[in-house]
């Protein structure tokens, strides 16, 4: 009997990276679109003053688009 360690390792690696990446990106999107708490606003927005709201928002939409693309790829994998 030969255990296919390579395939197992591959599944492990890919799953870990993709899961963490997807969750991370999606969370960034959520963070970008949700309101900043006022207490942290001073420290958080200090570096990126001015149009940081719009920037964060568009960045968030980019994140969501990336996730949508990943879902589409997932559907493609299921169908293929």
């Amino acid at each position: 009997m030969n255990i296919d360690w390579a395939a197992l390792g591959q599944v492990f690696g890919v799953s870990l990276v993709v899961t963490v990446a997807m969750v991370g990106v999606f969370t960034l999107g959520i963070v970008g679109t949700s309101a900043k708490p006022s207490r942290d606003a001073a420290t958080g927005a200090a570096g990126t003053a001015g149009g940081s709201g719009a920037l964060a928002r568009s960045g968030a939409y980019a994140c969501f688009a990336l996730c949508a693309a990943a879902v589409a790829y997932g559907i493609y994998l299921i169908v293929a």
Binding site: T19, V23, G24, T27, I30, V31, S34, D40, G44
Partner: peptide, 12 residues
């Protein structure tokens, strides 16, 4: 992933 998402969104 859970650790990460809690960390990123911790001030929300």
């Amino acid at each position: 992933a859970t650790r990460l998402t809690y960390r990123i969104a911790r001030d929300r």
